[in-house]
Structures are given as structure tokens and as C-alpha cells.
Simulated scan of single mutants.
Amino acid sequence: MEKTIDEARDVACLYLVIPCYNEEQVLPVTAPRFLEKIKEMEGRGLISGESRILFIDDGSSDSTWSIVTALNSRDHRFQGIRQSRNRGHQNAVLAGLMEARSKADIVISVDCDGQDDFDAMDAMVDKYYDGYDVVYGVRSSRESDTFFKRFTAESFYRILNALGAETIYNHADYRLTSKRVLNAFADFHEVNLYLRGLFPLVGFPSTTVEYERHERMAGSSHYPLAKMLSLAFNGITSLSIKPIRLITGLGAFVSLVSFIGVIWVICKVASGDTVSGWASTACILCFVSGVQLLSLGVIGEYVGKIYMESKHRPRYIISDRTSGDE
């Protein structure tokens, strides 16, 4: 049954979950913009006056936490939690979601750099009132990206889907989720997190909202190519066993080729048409050895993840919180 603002006077309480890591340059610029958006949505009756902006300091080494506490002292709508050490973007987002789920009706996770269009939040909340529990922010285009960035990003999503990790094309971590989705999501206890692939697994009605992505308002990106590749590999191995199956298929193919090669050698020996040489032998050995090492590496990655999951270590540890509501 669809929900509308006209049917229910009790509008939703919204929390913005904003992960931060060494963002002392951009935070003073974007924080007022987030507050302005919250006030605007309150004025339109989209969200309640209990809505908040929750910053998650992911163990920053600069003055990010000092800025968050200063914002909180000036306006109680700004709240913050601080992790005991840097644990990565995905764990920081998770910490914010779990912190907000008991306080908010809906949560929007968004980066603090100002690249994600703030106005898309209005459309996300509208979709929530239309009956959707998950609203994914999806980039409308990548025309502003360089060729290399666009090629790698598009390849990233295609490879993930091809290897069995269900993802929303051109979606990062800009999304709205309802309380019941977060309550269900709390039952997922993976240590190796890939949130973009986990939310589709939770289910519930979902839709997308397109938006234009802008340049950073200040500072520089903390997500270089190496971290993007690590995130992609983590997403594949955390959500799919298809690479293991590909290894099995490759092993069967190599075995078949080797069996044919053995038959060919036997025929050559029987006919007396043999020539001693090291080149063919070396090529075969290098090929088979390479396949074996690659296969062992992928299997080892899965074994390592099983090892980490078996320890049941906490995914985040909150060391500090700002003061509560006035």
C-alpha cells in the first residue's frame, strides 16, 4: 500500500549518514549545504524536525573530528561518531547506518565531498512515500569523466555482474533506505563488506533516481585506482563463488588439452617421428604453472576471507560521540 504525505501527517524522520576521512578542507564547505537541504525539506513538509546530519569520522588524522564537534556545538542537527581507527569507507557507512537505524525512519548515505547532487534527496524521499524501501542514486551520465575513468568504471560494473555480484549500474553509495530494510540488514554479519551488492540481497521494493555528479567542492579524492580495484575484488569474492567455478572450468579445459597432448606424444613416439627440444616443454610447463598459481591465488583469497569471517571481529568500534539533541 502506497504512503503519501497527505495520508499521513507524521512525516518521516531522516538521517543523513556522511562518512568522512581527512576531510578538513571540504567539510566546512559542504556541511552548511547539508544543513540548508535539511531545513528546506523540513519546510516543504517532506521530513520531520527531528531529522539530523550524522558524520562518521573514519579515524581521520587531521582536524575532521574537531570540525564535526564544532558543528555540533553550533547546531544540534549536526551529530557525529568517531571510529577508533581507520577501517575503510564501507565500514564507516555501515557504522552510520547502524547508529541511525534506531532513531530514523529513513536514512540517506552520501559522501561529504559534495559531488552527489543534493536535490536528488527530494526525489528519493518522494519515492519512499510512493512505497519504496530502497532508492538507489544512479548517475545519469559519465560525460564529465576522462576516457580512462569512464572505461574503468563501466568495466567495473559489467565484470561484477558477469561474475555473479548483483549491483545497480552506475550506483555508488548514494542511497535511501528505510528502517525496516536496515533492521533486516543488521542480520548480515559479513566482515568483508561490499554494501552496493548486499542491499540488493536484502530485497524489499526498490527503485532508482538519476542525478548529475559534480566535481569535488574542495580537497582531493581519497579513493584512488588501487582502492577502487580492491573494492571491486572484494565485491566479487564476498558475494559470488563464480571465480571458483571458472577455475574449475579452466582446470577441466587444461586437463583436456593435456590429455590430447599426451595422446599426440604417444602417436609421435609410436611412429618414430620424435624430435628432442626444450621449447615446447618449457612453454607447456610455464602455461600450466601459471594456471596453477592463479588458481591457488583465487582459492587462497576465498580461504582468507573464510578465516577472517570465522574470527567474528567487530566491523567498527566507535570511540567518541558528539553531544546529543538539545
Rank of each mutant, 00 (worst) to 15 (best):
V298H: 03
L54P: 00
D6E: 15
T146E: 11
S230C: 13
G59K: 00
A270G: 12
E154V: 13
E23I: 05
L246I: 13
L14Q: 00
R315T: 14
L231V: 11
E36V: 04
I236M: 04
S255L: 14
S73V: 12
S206A: 14
I247C: 02
E24R: 14
M98Q: 10
G114F: 03
V291P: 01
V303R: 07
L27Q: 01
R9E: 12
T146S: 15
S178H: 02
V107C: 02
D145N: 13
T274D: 10
F233V: 15
C13D: 09
I81W: 02
P205I: 06
Y307R: 06
M1L: 09
T30Q: 01
N86D: 12
S102A: 09
S102E: 10
G88K: 01
E301W: 13
R101N: 06
L293Q: 15
F188T: 09
K179A: 06
P243W: 08
T177G: 04
Y21L: 07
V11C: 02
T146Q: 08
A153Y: 06
A120D: 03
E42M: 13
I38H: 01
N183S: 11
V265N: 12
F151G: 06
R101L: 08
I53E: 00
S310L: 08
S323C: 14
T69H: 04
A282N: 04
Y128C: 00
K37Q: 11
L239N: 02
L193G: 01
M41L: 15
H89S: 08
R175F: 15
E190F: 10
V275Q: 05
L94W: 02
I244Q: 03
L198K: 08
Y211W: 11
T152F: 07
G300L: 06
T207F: 05
R142I: 08
R101F: 12
I18V: 15
F259H: 08
W264H: 14
V135K: 00
F253G: 08
R213G: 07
R139W: 04
A92E: 02
R150Q: 11
L231Q: 13
L193P: 01
T237P: 03
F259N: 07
V125N: 00
P243T: 08
T69P: 03
V134C: 03
R321I: 06
L225I: 12
S51T: 04
I284M: 13
A95P: 02
D119K: 10
D75A: 09
E301N: 14
V291M: 05
Y129V: 02
W264L: 12
E143H: 12
A95D: 03
L195M: 08
T208R: 05
H171A: 09
S319A: 08
Y132M: 01
R245A: 09
C286A: 15
G59P: 02
P243D: 07
I317V: 14
P314D: 06
